[in-house]
Nucleic acid binder design. Structure first.
Lengths: 228, 228
DNA sequence: ACCTGAACACCGTTCAAGT
DNA sequence: ACCTGAACACCGTTCAAGT
């Protein structure tokens, strides 16, 4: 190593954050927030530390484990739950997860490949389970319902992100909808869809999310005891 | 081109399927079925035709469009619906989609990135919408509910595939569950989870899927008129 | 133990050139 | 119009070698 190189390396070491699990997750999360999950690459993350991708493997077994840690970080940032009635708590929980995920692009897609075993996930599950059981929901119903509500939140949030991306910027959205409408009208094969096209395409993402959420809550309530 | 090369090329042309949209989708679907969506690459698909990836771009604008066509093919293979009561039809629909997807590995993950605008998807949506409206479900509830049920089917089916993969072959599953149980028992931070660990981890994927499905149907029914 | 350069075995997509 | 070889600009992961 020449003296110049040594000096250059020392200068880099001063300027750049030192490698650590937290610092690596920081960088990866910044890429997720600005460009999306698919733009995270071991090479790009490593470049932020002026090194090559191999350096990251001292901290994470592979890319999947790194992304897993990024998701855990985001889940830990979800505000904790409040409320007494389990309906209120489930509603508040779902909305705050949705809102938090919405601030991190397509992070929701990671929820599918991920067993929620982090401290944050467990704390949330514990709180929900407690409130539901104390509220008169049978333990089996509550246990399984928590899974299903989590699945719904992840899927709906990810879908909304993708829909937003598809229609980003230009008037593509209006074009696609009107194409769809004229396809339906010109063909007599889909009379119900044609007749109800306005209601099919109505509502904001929030309204539709809340609608599904209330449907799930009603479904749980149908298997729970009377409100108390 | 030398005479030998010309002969070799002619021989290949005889032996190999000719390029066409359908033939390309065939090959891609075969890879999905045997190895999963992530193993599909333009290079591998093209190799089945003894050519390079560039050849596929005469038929599909990009890899996404090819995978989209693969999903449409699978959706078209879902048996059509029967039944009178909308509850029965929704139940039968959900189960047959789940079953069909289960035969194509992780195909369900494509449903998130995909607007279901194929002939097959529209026909299914039309049938569901008709049965629900005629059964007394308000049009707005029916329209939105179809979206939510579809979302649920896709998410649950994909999740089940991933869970199956995680625990494939060895006794990793039992290990992970018992690790989880001892974590919960050793920590007093999660009393409800610890007390209900048996019910949390109980049930087959089918049972849990059906449970969520009944929850959704109950949720729709709560907003529908009386059964008739 | 932590860190790295280089290499391995891949990607999707484009493009000029051919038929 | 359909088809192709070659190239471009990337990947995740491994490994021998260094500190």
């Amino acid at each position: 190593v020449s003296p110049q190189e040594a000096r250059a390396r020392a200068a880099r070491a001063k300027r750049r954050p030192r490698l650590s699990k937290d610092a690596i997750v920081d960088v990866a999360l910044r890429i997720v927030d600005t460009e999306g999950v698919d733009e995270v690459s071991m090479r790009r993350v490593a470049a932020a530390f002026d090194t090559g991708p191999a350096s990251l493997y001292a901290y994470f077994a592979n890319k999947d484990e790194l992304l897993h840690s990024v998701l855990d970080r985001v889940i830990d940032s979800i505000p904790s739950l409040t409320g007494a009635d389990w309906r209120e708590v489930v509603r508040g929980y779902a909305r705050s997860v949705r809102e938090t995920f919405a601030g991190h692009r397509d992070i929701a897609k990671l929820t599918f490949a991920h067993i929620p075993a982090g401290e944050g996930s467990l704390a949330k599950a514990e709180h929900l389970l407690g409130v539901m059981i104390e509220g008169g929901v049978p333990p089996r119903v509550a246990s399984w319902a928590i899974d299903i509500v989590s699945l719904y939140i992840g899927a709906a949030t990810y879908e909304d992100y993708l829909a937003g991306q598809r229609f980003a910027g230009d008037d593509l959205a209006a074009d696609m909808v009107s194409d769809f409408v004229s396809t339906l009208n010109s063909s007599s094969a889909f009379p119900y869809l044609a007749r109800h096209i306005d209601v099919l395409t109505s509502g904001t993402p929030e309204e539709r999310f809340d609608f599904g959420l209330e449907m799930l809550i009603a479904g749980i309530a149908a298997q729970a005891g009377p409100r108390r």
